[in-house]
Design a protein around this nucleic acid. Structure first.
Length: 739
DNA sequence: ATGTTTATTATTTTT
DNA sequence: TAATAAACAT
């Protein structure tokens, strides 16, 4: 392996610094993944470290997969024994291996966000709290925050300071009890319980620490306190901990990620080597300069400067659109043009946005124009109702003590078990501290065993007995087959297939989704019985990443800024460059949050390799309401000399009738119009945002100004009733107004 | 007990 | 706007 031909000197230093703690601060596009891949290859090939003694932690499952592939490529052959995955996946594996020592059922299930919300709701009710006054989601977030900082319910009692904390405290205890009774762990538990296990059990700690001679953590800036503690514990013995991160790309503080971990690292491992990777290989000089200007405004950041030897490339295009439809239309037009005239492929392009809701308008435009696109993770596959229902059957079959999932399907399709009966059953089970499933089992026992009965009607009892039989049947089936076959049986025996087909008009589509789940399940057909089921459930719980489901080749990617972390595209559009959106309205009050918004913008900009578009809409419909938004403050920080107006005439029409305009623009008409567009004539007379005055319409703000034939067309938003008008420069009585 | 209609309400990012 | 809960009718 001749490293000097593959890597620059700093990268080589990071690869070869294998003894002792190392912190690699790696800017965007600085070859970070490359460094990790070669570092692992170097450990295995040159240092003779067995792959089984290496642990590499990534931020997403997808990243783990890709990294494994690249390592396999470099080393030739599959490195099966390498421990590689997210903190959560690795945590789950450790906890199953050492379930006994951790005091867990080795068949524990993993609760996702939705399950958690259900548990919180139930806990709120149990605690007698009005769940209208305290949103379950807020409480869930508070509990999760406490857990990821390793605060137990008992410790929480000490820090409660207001009424909300008081409520959280009351619910937190109850929440943990419900999880335990359900033999379930939530996401945070997958980390927290590992830490507790390692801290509390010297024997297990020794074994784990002995095994992992080298530990790597990627995206270190986005780890939380518990995760860092877990990594530190595992690496404590050999002290070969290498963390790779970039404080400027920390964008998950809302999930309790804490950049301070980087500072803690240098404190906990004095004398750690610090290596900086600052040369960017990804983007044009223009993009790097602009991104650097934007991020430089943050006060709370390390001193450093990203640089590149790449050529400057083209200016960044800043575009002002009328509204979100117009914004989408502009993007679609540009993609089309880049593909037709400039040799890009659809797959080279990506549209990035702050909120998932923004994807709608963009998606509609792509559909209307018939351009290929794929949307990453909006309505995530595993969150579809029908998929969750079928999964609930599987999960209850695997672990019948899972109350949340049992409640989900006990009456789906309806089998005569109504809310009243369930309430009564739950009260009865609660008094006895029994999971619902155990309570239902007890119903079948003779009266001396079951004691004072629940007050259920005969019909309900019979229906519950029927449900019990159903689950028992599935259980027997599960033992003798595999997950994919079990899904088939669930569909047939529970009546779910008929229920789906009968329910909506899109029942067939829903069934199609379930079949997709079956396809996923088939991956685990080499395993038999409960093992197959266990493997599927684990995968589903931890791969909330829907990236592997139905990705279209060579299509434009529609993705949130957060999800785009770690990715790169030749052409990037950032949509919604507006105050209130990016930066988001919720971050306006808090300086630290505002810095995070800026980092998010920085992350977005640095995804671009060759072309970067920053697009904003003058007005936008948000949950039914229209509002006019100021341009994002981040646009002001992009030096004007690095930007340009769009080179071609933008397609637009007056007024606010997107439907009509879309219709008019579809198909051949659009192409004709495009072909008819004329070469630019002279520099624009006005820039977007300038104040102007008109003889009859009064004062207004320029939205766009661009060439139109031999003239220029100025679009102005006027104060008051006049609204938005398109005017021709040579005719309109316009004059500048000083701000 | 279940399906239908109306009212309400909350809108960021996700392993 | 859209998703969900509550109220209502069957």
């Amino acid at each position: 392996m001749e490293l000097s031909t593959l890597l620059n000197p700093s990268q080589i230093e990071a690869v070869q610094a294998v003894d002792g703690p190392v912190l690699v601060v790696a800017g965007p596009g600085s070859g970070k993944t490359r460094v990790i891949v070669y570092r692992i290859a170097y450990l295995v090939r040159t240092c003779g470290v067995r792959p089984s003694r290496i642990m590499a932690v990534t931020f997403t499952n997808k990243a783990a997969r890709e990294m494994r592939d690249r390592i396999d490529q470099v080393l030739g052959g599959a490195q099966q024994n390498l421990t590689m995955g997210t903190f959560h996946a690795i945590g789950a594996r450790l906890l199953r291996t050492y379930a006994d020592s951790a005091g867990l059922d080795p068949n524990f299930v993993i609760y996702d966000a939705d399950d958690q919300t259900q548990v919180v709701k139930r806990s709120l009710e149990d605690a007698g709290v009005d769940h209208k006054k305290f949103s379950p989601n807020a409480v869930k977030h508070a509990i999760s925050a406490a857990k990821s900082q390793m605060v137990t319910p008992a410790e929480f009692a000490g820090r409660k300071s207001n009424y909300f904390d008081e409520i959280v405290h009351r619910v937190y205890d109850r929440y943990e009890a419900v999880l335990e009774q359900s033999h379930a762990l939530d996401f945070d538990d997958l980390i927290v319980r590992v830490v507790r296990l390692l801290e509390g059990n010297a024997e297990v700690r020794e074994r784990v620490q002995d095994r992992y001679v080298h530990v790597l953590v990627d995206e270190f800036q986005d780890t939380n306190a518990a995760q860092y503690r877990m990594a530190r514990l595992i690496a404590e013995k050999h002290r070969n901990l290498c963390v790779v991160g970039d404080p400027d790309q920390a964008i998950y503080s809302w999930r309790q990620a804490d950049v301070a971990n980087i500072l803690n690292f240098e404190k906990d491992f004095p004398g750690a080597r610090v290596i900086h990777l600052e040369q960017n290989y990804r983007s044009t000089g223009t993009i790097i300069k602009a991104a650097d200007k934007v991020i430089a405004v943050n006060r709370n950041r390390p001193q450093r400067k990203l640089w590149t030897e790449n050529s400057d490339g083209l200016p960044i295009i800043v575009h002002d659109a009328l509204n979100e439809q117009d914004e989408a239309l502009f993007i679609v037009n540009e993609v089309d043009r880049l593909v037709k005239r400039e040799g890009f492929k659809h797959g080279d392009c990506a549209v990035l946005y702050r909120t998932n809701a923004q994807s709608r308008a963009v998606e509609e435009a792509f559909v209307r124009y018939g351009l290929p696109y794929h949307l990453v993770g909006a309505t995530r596959f595993y969150e579809r109702r029908e998929v969750k229902d079928v999964l609930a059957y599987l999960r209850v079959t695997y672990n019948p003590y899972d109350d949340v999932n049992l409640l989900r399907i006990v009456n789906v399709p309806s089998r005569g078990i109504g809310q009243k009966s369930l309430d009564e059953l739950a009260r009865w089970a609660n008094r006895r501290s029994l999971p619902l499933y155990a309570a239902i089992q007890l119903l079948g026992e003779p009266p001396e065993q079951r004691g004072e009965g629940p007050d259920l009607g005969q019909r309900a009892e019979k229906a519950l007995a029927g449900f019990l039989e159903l689950i028992r049947g599935l259980e027997a089936e599960a033992k003798g087959s595999n997950a994919a076959d079990l899904i088939k049986r669930v569909l047939a025996e529970t009546g779910y297939r008929d229920y789906l087909l009968a329910s909506d008009d899109d029942g067939e589509d829903r069934l199609e989704n379930v079949m997709e789940l079956r396809t996923v399940a088939e991956e685990f057909s080499h395993l038999r019985g409960m093992d197959s089921l266990a493997a599927l459930l684990e995968q589903v719980a931890l791969v909330a990443d829907s990236d592997n489901v139905g990705e279209k080749p060579n299509s434009t990617t529609l993705i949130t800024l957060h999800q785009a972390k770690g990715l790169e595209y030749p052409v990037v559009f950032i949509a919604g460059m507006e105050e209130g959106l990016l930066p988001h309205a919720r971050s306006m009050e808090d300086a630290a949050q505002m810095e995070e918004e800026r980092r998010l913008c920085y992350v977005g900009m640095t995804r671009a390799q060759q072309r970067l578009y920053l697009v904003r809409a003058y007005r936008r419909a948000a949950m039914g309401m229209r509002s006019a938004n100021e341009p994002s403050r981040f646009l002001r920080d992009v030096p004007p000399e690095l930007t340009a107006l769009p080179q071609r005439k933008r397609v637009q029409a007056a007024g606010f009738q997107p439907e009509m305009r879309m219709a008019a623009m579809s198909g051949a008409a659009a192409r004709d119009r495009e072909a008819a567009s004329v070469a630019p004539a002279g520099p624009p007379a006005y820039k977007a945002g300038e104040r102007v005055k008109h003889g009859t319409f009064g004062e207004g703000v320029v939205i766009t100004c661009h060439p139109s034939g031999s003239d220029q067309e100025v679009t102005v938003a006027f104060r008051g009733t006049a609204g938005v008008k398109k005017l021709l420069l040579s005719f309109a009585p316009l004059e500048r107004v000083q701000a």
